[in-house]
Structures are given as C-alpha cells and as structure tokens.
Computed example of a mutant assay.
Amino acid sequence: MLTFPNAKINIGLHITEKRADGFHNLESCFYPVGWSDALEIFPAEKLSFKSSGIEIPGNPETNLCLKAYHLVKQDFDIAPVMIHLHKAVPIGAGMGGGSADCAFTIKTLNELFALHLTTEVMENYARQLGSDCAFFIQNRPQYCFGKGDEFAEISLDLSGKFIVLVNPNIHISTAEAYSGVKPTKTGIDLREVLQKPINEWTGIVKNDFENHLLPKYPAIQAIKDQLYQNGAAYASMTGSGSTVFGIFDQAIDLKEHFAEYSLWQGKM
C-alpha cells in the first residue's frame, strides 16, 4: 500500500508557557501542504525498514515508522511488514515530515489489516510518538494547542491560494529553537485574527521563534524578505525553522530565485 505523507505549515506560532514536564504549551494553526514523502508498506515474512531520498540520520531501527508499527503491534497481532520510506520533505525543517511519516504508518496499518481503529484511537497512538504527530491523522486545518497535540475546529480555507516553501538547508534542532524563547500570553485570539484577509496578517500573525532565529540566521530573513518582494500576501517561518513559506493569490514560479535551496511550490 502506497501513501504520500505530506508536510504542514504553522500559521502563527505562539509559545505561551513552559510546562512542569519540560515541554511548552503553544497555540498555532496547523495547515497541511503538498510537499510529501512516499511511504510503501506491505506484508512480508520479516519486519524490515529501508529508506531512500534524503538521508535520515540516526539508527534506522529507531525510525518513527518502525516505532509506530511496534506501538500498534502491542495491541494487535498484525503480520510483519516491509516499510519503504522515500524521504523528500527536508528534515528538521519545521514542517513535521517525520511526524507525518509515523502518523501515515498508523493509518496504513489500520487499513492494511482492517483494524477498524477510530480517529481518536489513532491520534492517541500518534501522541505517544511526538507532539505534532496526531495532527496528521485527520490531516486538515486545525487550531492546535497544549503541546501541539490538542485540536479545535478552525474556519480557515486557503484552497485556491498558491504557496511557495523554501528551505535553506539549515538544520535547527528543537533544543536550539526553544533555548531562545520567552513564553508569553499573546492577548489575541489567533482564530479570530485568521478570519481577516491574508494581507492583514503581517505584523499580527507571528511565529515566536523568528525573534531570535532570524537574527542568528540571516539567510532565513533574506528568504522571507524576498517572498514579500515577489508579491506574497503573507510570509513566515514555519515551526521551529528553518523553512519559510509565502502565500500568494496567484501561481508564481520562484525556482530561479532560490536555486541553491530546497523548494516546493503549488496549490494549497
């Protein structure tokens, strides 16, 4: 069974407080985008995992896709599988690529073995694998809060818009990103603000990580500036970086402007 785990962007990302468990509470709108990996899973005589495309650091035996399989295997007597992940979404880029891979593994196992898992059960599996993994079970625009694994409805439909995502091949670890954050309450309701026209978001809908990461990495600031110069209605860094996205009213081709970087562009 072949699926295509897609990335997401954060439209607004506010770190509101540090939790007693060491994590941070946040609020954001998670929005799925088309930049995707390819994930193939089928029954096999022996459990195995292989990858292609972008090199995945670390021990393959601890890959999130395998962790997802073992999590489901604890509760269901499912057969061994062969998992092949072709990695195209940049790693450590603020787009949740690895989180999508493990969530899609859970959904694929559910379908492959007819487990009849509810959305809630699959989200609970995903929450055990990472803070934003559960989002990719429903994989639709959501207002996210808590650690990024609690969801509420949001009325935001950007279909018809065009998006350009640019990754400057800078890896920013979660620890580095959070080390410069000062949690604060925003005093605004993100869901209300996102009902305004997109060209009114600038200066209001912010990613808190930009405050310290853009001065540290001028290339990220330069990408954001260039997206605006080319007509973006709104541009921002997503997640904890380093990918920057621009939302446009019409299709635009910016490949030549960012030839040295990883880029994806398409309809939202």
Results as ranks from 00 to 15, higher is better:
residue 98 G to K: 02
residue 201 W to T: 12
residue 6 N to Q: 15
residue 95 M to L: 08
residue 52 S to M: 05
residue 129 L to K: 01
residue 200 E to D: 15
residue 37 D to T: 00
residue 155 S to V: 14
residue 174 T to W: 07
residue 227 L to V: 02
residue 139 N to F: 01
residue 209 F to Q: 02
residue 99 S to Q: 02
residue 89 V to P: 07
residue 114 A to K: 13
residue 144 C to S: 13
residue 161 K to C: 15
residue 235 A to R: 09
residue 257 H to V: 14
residue 138 Q to N: 15
residue 169 N to C: 12
residue 217 Y to T: 14
residue 174 T to H: 06
residue 43 P to M: 00
residue 218 P to Q: 03
residue 8 K to Q: 03
residue 195 Q to N: 14
residue 90 P to L: 02
residue 92 G to H: 04
residue 42 F to H: 12
residue 14 H to R: 08
residue 112 L to D: 00
residue 250 Q to H: 11
residue 84 H to Q: 10
residue 18 K to F: 03
residue 154 I to K: 01
residue 264 W to D: 13
residue 135 F to I: 10
residue 161 K to G: 12
residue 145 F to T: 11
residue 32 P to E: 09
residue 187 G to M: 05
residue 100 A to Y: 15
residue 128 Q to I: 07
residue 8 K to M: 15
residue 255 K to H: 10
residue 154 I to H: 00
residue 170 I to Q: 09
residue 174 T to C: 10
residue 227 L to K: 00
residue 207 N to C: 10
residue 48 S to D: 05
residue 45 E to T: 13
residue 67 K to E: 08
residue 94 G to M: 09
residue 27 E to A: 12
residue 249 D to L: 06
residue 150 E to R: 09
residue 241 G to C: 10
residue 26 L to K: 01
residue 168 P to D: 03
residue 222 A to P: 06
residue 163 I to A: 14
residue 230 N to R: 07
residue 38 A to I: 13
residue 171 H to W: 13
residue 264 W to K: 15
residue 199 N to G: 12
residue 47 L to Y: 01
residue 15 I to Y: 15
residue 127 R to Y: 01
residue 173 S to E: 13
residue 220 I to G: 11
residue 10 N to C: 08
residue 147 K to G: 12
residue 45 E to F: 15
residue 228 Y to K: 01
residue 229 Q to C: 10
residue 126 A to I: 02
residue 171 H to T: 13
residue 79 A to Q: 06
residue 47 L to Q: 00
residue 31 Y to N: 00
residue 127 R to T: 05
residue 121 V to M: 11
residue 30 F to T: 05
residue 14 H to N: 15
residue 268 M to C: 09
residue 216 K to P: 15
residue 18 K to G: 06
residue 189 D to V: 11
residue 31 Y to G: 03
residue 208 D to E: 09
residue 52 S to I: 04
residue 23 F to K: 00
residue 130 G to T: 01
residue 48 S to W: 05
residue 164 V to R: 01
residue 199 N to L: 13
residue 255 K to F: 12
residue 36 S to Y: 09
residue 80 P to M: 08
residue 43 P to F: 02
residue 140 R to C: 12
residue 105 T to H: 00
residue 64 L to G: 02
residue 211 N to A: 13
residue 19 R to L: 07
residue 120 E to D: 09
residue 222 A to T: 05
residue 246 G to T: 11
residue 146 G to C: 14
residue 167 N to K: 05
residue 50 K to Q: 11
residue 203 G to A: 10
residue 14 H to D: 09
residue 27 E to C: 11
residue 4 F to M: 13
residue 127 R to S: 06
residue 165 L to A: 12
residue 164 V to N: 05
residue 159 S to T: 10
residue 202 T to W: 14
residue 121 V to Q: 09
residue 128 Q to V: 08
